[in-house]
Design a protein around this nucleic acid. Structure first.
Length: 487
RNA sequence: GGCCCUAUCGUCUAGAGGCCUAGGACGCCGGGUUCUCAACCCGGUAACACGGGUUCGAAUCCCGUUGGGGCUACCA
């Protein structure tokens, strides 16, 4: 029985890359009557949030992807949330420690940093130097008992090599002396991805690990863990990474990456699914181009999948979306629009906000139109004012984007607080800066109240409008980004 | 810097030594249809990164160069 999994980390917006990998796993499992598991990798306590987890589950469901086992539907290998499986990882880490396949490391961050710097200078691979490997078992035990903080690292051989086999790429040889002695247990007692992932994949009987290409270089560590535990490793398949138009790894700095964005923008789930599917299962003729989940399962073939990282081509997505919109009956389209647009309560709110600002009923729709739009047209002239020059404006937009990105909440108070903080940071009055935000968000300097509008629009659309306005003013260079973020 | 992956039209790709004067789709351009615009139909533009091999024959195999990407955390 084939068993695959998607293991998202609930540390932010549901990413289209997650959907892409989930789709590959789902389709591969279903194609041979296997099971597809969803597991939440929330071992990063600082960054994981329940809001993010809920959004990821919801987004995948919205796309039409379902799972046989998962935190919400349960299953024979529950729990499916790593934060609830701590005892397991502790047990296995202890086993490695006892067998001498792992060791406690008491090194300070400063020492490790210095070590890496030296290694780079000497043109050597970055790798733990084995400092704490020399500690005797007694001393290691004694220091741990004395309460000294430590991590547990994987012991990696100094010589020899390992071959990683990939369904599409075939074998790749890695020299052990270039593989780092990865931390398996953090000082907070929680496992890192590397340990948790191996333990869970084994326990959950995952037969095929289909994941992004960024994991290739840690595959040797994972395989070594399977060896140490005496477990049969899964078959590996590394998918190429989705790219920005400039070919770098798809990132929200340069592109909308959140599934929520595409949903709010008015893309249909079947269109997004088809688009992602096209990147996984190429077609030979135009007659095969339109397909759904079942067809993807039938056609997916990792043996021939293209390995050049595909650019996320929104123009093609647009075309597909148009196709699916036209294919609907008017009644279906009406229903889709109803689901997409604001609910009754929000509509009430919108009308209330507009009421005092209109003189004729016919003023209502134009005033509110920006709330129903994806992007709005902005120009340099309307964005800038006598009080705010282009430099200040660019910085104000960039800072607003970054501030609004973090934090689980996107409510009125949060937005107001963050935007006012930007004004303070720039040493300008918020009143002078507000016009910029009004134009960026609504397309006009005369509009509905800003913070309310932003809540209604949601984080994803707001971020995209700020990004669009920023691009109109010339964008932000890498150097500026670094400097501004540091300050 | 080190290690690894990768390379066909602008983009997604077909191509598994002769079927390739390299096919399709999106985009773009032109035409048709039409009360406008879309949609639709027809046509066009456009690519095997480069250099060496192997072979009777290479987009396809090998090596090198170059380009792109990833990893290099007590993040995943």
């Amino acid at each position: 029985m084939i068993r695959t999994r998607i293991a998202p980390s609930p540390t932010g917006d549901p990413h289209v890359g997650t959907a892409y990998v989930a789709l590959a796993n789902y389709a591969f499992a279903k194609r041979q009557g296997g099971k597809f598991v969803l597991r939440i990798e929330d071992t990063d306590q600082a960054r994981s949030t329940p809001e993010s987890e809920a959004a990821i589950l919801r987004s995948l469901r919205w796309l039409g992807i379902s799972w046989d086992e998962g935190p919400d539907v349960g299953g024979p290998h529950a729990p499916y949330r790593q934060s609830q499986r701590s005892a397991l990882y502790e047990k296995y880490a202890r086993e490695l420690l006892e067998k001498g396949d792992a060791f406690r490391c008491f090194c300070s961050a400063a020492r490790l940093e210095e070590m890496r710097e030296t290694q780079r200078l000497l043109k050597q691979p970055s790798r733990y130097d084995g400092h704490c490997l020399k500690l005797s078992a007694d001393e290691s035990e004694r220091r741990a008992n004395a309460g000294e903080p430590f991590v547990i690292r994987l012991k990696v051989p100094d010589r020899g090599s390992i071959t990683v086999d990939d369904m599409r790429r075939g074998p790749t040889v890695f020299e052990w002396n270039a593989v780092d002695m990865q931390v398996l247990m953090k000082s907070d007692g929680l496992p890192t991805y590397h340990l948790a992932n191996v333990v869970d994949d084994h326990l959950m009987e995952i037969t095929h690990v289909i994941r992004g290409e960024e994991w290739i270089s840690s595959a040797p560590k994972h395989l070594l863990l399977y060896q140490y535990f005496g477990w049969k490793p899964p078959v590996l398949m590394h998918l190429p990474l989705l790219r920005n138009p400039d070919r770098s790894k798809l990132s929200k700095r340069k592109n909308p990456t959140s599934i929520l964005f595409y949903e709010r923008m008015g893309y249909l789930p079947e269109a997004l699914l088809n688009f992602l599917g096209l990147l996984l299962a190429p077609v030979e003729s135009e007659h095969e181009e339109l397909f759904g989940l079942d067809d993807l399962s039938r056609r997916l073939d990792f043996g021939t999948i293209s390995l050049g990282g595909p650019v996320f081509d929104v123009a093609k997505l647009d075309w597909l979306n148009g196709h699916y919109i036209r294919k609907k009956s008017p009644a279906e389209l009406e229903e889709a629009f109803g689901e997409w647009t604001y609910d009754r309560a929000a509509l009430h709110e919108i009308v209330a906000l507009a009421q005092q600002r209109i003189e004729r009923l016919s003023d209502l729709a134009p005033l509110c139109a920006f709330l129903f739009a994806g992007r709005v047209a902005v120009s340099r002239e309307t964005l800038l004012s006598a009080k705010i020059d282009a430099e200040t404006a660019r910085k104000a937009l960039a800072l607003a984007m970054w501030r609004l990105d973090d934090g689980p909440l996107f409510d009125k108070a949060t937005i107001e607080g963050e935007l006012r903080a930007v004004a303070d940071e720039l040493g300008v009055k918020f009143r002078d800066l507000s016009r910029l935000y009004y134009v960026a968000i609504s397309g006009s300097a005369a509009s509905l109240p800003l913070f309310d509008s932003m809540v209604l629009l949601g984080r994803d659309l707001c971020r995209e409008r700020l990004r669009t306005a920023l691009a109109e003013l010339g964008g932000v260079s890498a150097a500026e980004q670094k400097a501004w973020r540091a300050a």
